[in-house]
Design a binder for these strands. Structure first.
Lengths: 230, 230
DNA sequence: TCGAATTTTAACAATTCGTTAACATGCGTA
DNA sequence: TACGCATGTTAACGAATTGTTAAAATTCGA
């Protein structure tokens, strides 16, 4: 569930302040003090946002941003620049290289967080709002409501996301790990067994006979499948 | 539906910066580098706002604004001037010719967006006066009046906007961030927790039993929802 | 039919999330 | 200037959710 933010900042004090603020706001922070190797290090696990100092020893933030935009894995990730300069030419250069916002020092932690939230929000893709139906189950993704055989049932947030995922992919078998990736927002520390538990909880809510599941089937040695095989 | 902004600016860097910022803020941008043919090109599809550089080769921004005001199709569309000059006489000249605001270079993307929003808000056609009803709640958007179960209640401005938003989107779940975006005018520095507080205040005014809300429901792990879907 | 592998299940612990009251700050107006 | 109302923040508290564990049950191949 937690989003990761990569900071590249050579000034230790500022880096400290920033990473502290971000951690406080619930973000996971990865710190770099130079632009060296940032792109390579991030390509495997892309962060949600880059926070780049414009003035960096060696490779400037602007050039780093350029590199990020060249990387297939990272090109769509938002970038915010941090800078002490306020001259117009810098602003222009920053945004032209693909920055999405610009924060000038000194800034307050509060402002920093607000700007980051605003940018992240802009980039977040809302799931389409629709009514999904499959057999006995009907899901309203906008209202977060589920009905089974015409009767409204209540689900927790995670149960809902899992069920929605299944209903959006009827007939496909998913391994526990795939489900963790898709449904759990930060799957880093969650055991695959937890999926079993959630499957069980869902069955109790949607199956006629939870002991003999009809819709949410076990595929032994592989994982789970919702609905008929494709 | 996105609003269109027409920019007329000869400096390529600035035009680039501006159009990037506007696009980021969700506006559609049409760029012109001179005043030639702007009016003609816009009459078929009037934009929501003009952003004019005062100093333009050939036809000055002031003259262009004048033309805009002569055009029946465009006369009521707001105009913001962009200029490097800061002298008072220019300001006066710009506003006298029908400009609605004035931004001096250098400016930050943020400031630009904020000013544009402010002007658009001022020009926004007054919302149609209507009576919205949902269950026990009746809202008169023209008079900013709310009745619950036939009884008039008083709300503060923010409470009203929040309630109106909920009533206009019955049955939808909104996250705190979405509500901040939609209801708080300048959400830059407001904590998502504030939404909780306003929800609580609204509940005290509209629910029979504020401790067991019936209309304005919590959706744990997601946000809030007003009313039930059909 | 035995046994290993896998899944199910219930109980438990940890953590997150929402509520709420009290407080701080701002803003307009008397 | 002082007052009152509107707005926003904070922190503690309790409750619901989430994830783990281990034992029991099931499945399937040999």
């Amino acid at each position: 569930m937690k989003q990761t933010i990569v900071t590249v900042e050579d000034d230790v004090d500022i880096a400290q302040l920033v990473s502290h603020s971000l951690a406080n706001a619930g973000y996971v922070v990865r710190r770099f003090s130079t632009g060296q190797g940032v792109v390579e290090a991030c390509e495997k696990e892309p962060p949600s946002l880059f926070l780049l100092d414009v003035m960096l020893p060696g490779k400037s933030g602007l050039r780093l941003c350029d590199e990020i935009r060249q990387s297939v894995a990272l090109a769509t990730i938002p970038v915010i620049f941090l800078t002490a300069k306020t001259s117009e030419s810098d602003r222009v250069a920053g945004l032209e290289l693909g920055g999405d916002d610009y924060i000038t020092k000194p800034f307050s932690p509060r402002e920093l967080i607000a700007r980051i939230r605003a940018v992240l929000r802009r980039f977040e893709r809302p799931l389409p709002i629709e009514t999904l139906r499959s057999g006995d189950v009907e899901i309203d993704t906008g209202a977060m409501l589920v009905s089974v055989r015409g009767k409204r049932i209540t689900t927790t947030a995670t149960e809902f996301r899992l069920l929605e995922y299944f209903v959006r992919h009827i007939g496909r078998v998913f391994t526990r790990d795939q489900l963790l990736d898709a449904v759990w927002r930060d799957n880093a520390f969650v055991t695959p067994r937890s999926v079993d538990v959630y499957v069980r909880r869902l069955r109790e809510k949607i199956e006629r006979d939870p002991e003999n599941p009809d819709m949410l089937r076990t595929v032994r040695g592989a994982g789970y499948r919702f609905g008929e095989p494709a």
